[in-house]
Simulated assay, not measured.
Amino acid sequence: MALDQASVISEWVLPAAVCAPVTWICLVFRFREDGRLLGTARSSALALCVVLWTSGMAALASGVLLPLTPSVPPMAVGVATGWGVSPRGRGGERNGGGPAMAVLTLGNSLLLHQLALRLRTDRADWCERMAEGFRDCWHLDYYADDIRSHLLLRVDVQGRTNRARTLAKREINERHKEVRAAAQRWITVETKVKKAARLQDRLPEPDEIRQVKRAFGEAEQYLRHLLELAHTHGKRSDGVKILAIKERYLVPPGMDEALGGGPGAPDTDPQGVSRR
């Protein structure tokens, strides 16, 4: 009995125990640019399913194959199976490792595909929540400025190469410029529509309102594009900071003119700090 228990532990439990952390490390590496594995309950559940399924395959492969190939260490089976979820490039395909890993990680393709979709959905939902709620592009523009500063302060981290820092800063600045340009287009369109309505003593026409809304929607889209960088490269705690920044610029109805919103607004933010 003792021998059987030792055999079960060495041939089934040990490979699964070794496979679990290897799988998790590979998942983090595989999806490092796609989002946060523990960002939501659904993404966490899918990531856990991948780890459990892969560990189960490692235990099954070890228990079935080791009696036929006793020269293979059980830990090697666990490591190889967990490594199978890591992204494989051309090198892995050339050396013939692809088919073997596909067998050892049987069923993981569907789980990994669902996990990738969930991470993209989670990121899109997060960016939408952080970008919605603004009454005009004045405050949206102020918000984008603070997001840019927030991101730039987190670029110069230890271990990142100078080239990586330069590329990160360039991407942040380019996406911020897109937000500012879109916000300026909205300001131009809204000013033109209000001026025409005031001169003709009428309300804005449906087509004019549609132009203003379309310009505002474009600015929101570019803001979400900027926020993707905060979600992809930031920590989970950064979400609290970004939400606090957003709440500074969410104003109740009727307060826009008092806080600098609308056409002809001064070049100051809601705290009265000059933007020039």
Rank of each mutant, 00 (worst) to 15 (best):
A2K: 12
L3H: 09
S7Q: 13
V8S: 02
V13T: 11
P15G: 05
V18L: 14
C19L: 11
T23S: 09
I25P: 00
C26Q: 14
C26I: 00
L27T: 02
L37K: 05
G39R: 07
S44P: 04
L48I: 06
W53E: 12
T54W: 03
T54G: 11
G56W: 00
L60H: 08
A61F: 00
S62K: 01
G63E: 03
V72H: 07
V72A: 12
A76E: 14
G78W: 07
W83M: 14
G84T: 10
S86D: 12
P87C: 01
P87L: 07
G89P: 11
G96E: 08
G97K: 04
A100Q: 15
L104K: 02
L104Q: 06
S109T: 09
L111N: 09
H113M: 06
L117A: 12
L119K: 07
W126A: 15
W126H: 09
C127M: 11
E132V: 05
E132R: 07
D136I: 00
H139G: 09
H139F: 14
L140T: 04
Y142Q: 14
Y142W: 10
S149G: 11
L152G: 01
L152R: 12
R154M: 01
D156A: 07
G159N: 00
R160P: 01
T161D: 12
T161M: 05
N162M: 08
A164V: 06
R165A: 09
R165P: 10
L167S: 09
L167C: 07
A168I: 02
E171I: 03
I172S: 14
N173L: 11
H176C: 12
E178H: 08
A181M: 08
A183L: 07
Q184W: 04
V189C: 11
K195A: 13
D201T: 04
L203N: 07
I209P: 01
R210N: 13
R214A: 13
F216I: 04
F216D: 13
A219R: 06
H225Q: 11
L226T: 05
E228C: 10
L229H: 08
A230S: 15
H231E: 15
K235F: 14
G239D: 15
K241P: 03
K246V: 00
E247D: 11
P252C: 00
G254I: 02
E257D: 06
L259K: 07
L259V: 04
D267W: 01
D269V: 01
D269G: 04
P270R: 07
G272S: 10
V273C: 11
S274L: 10
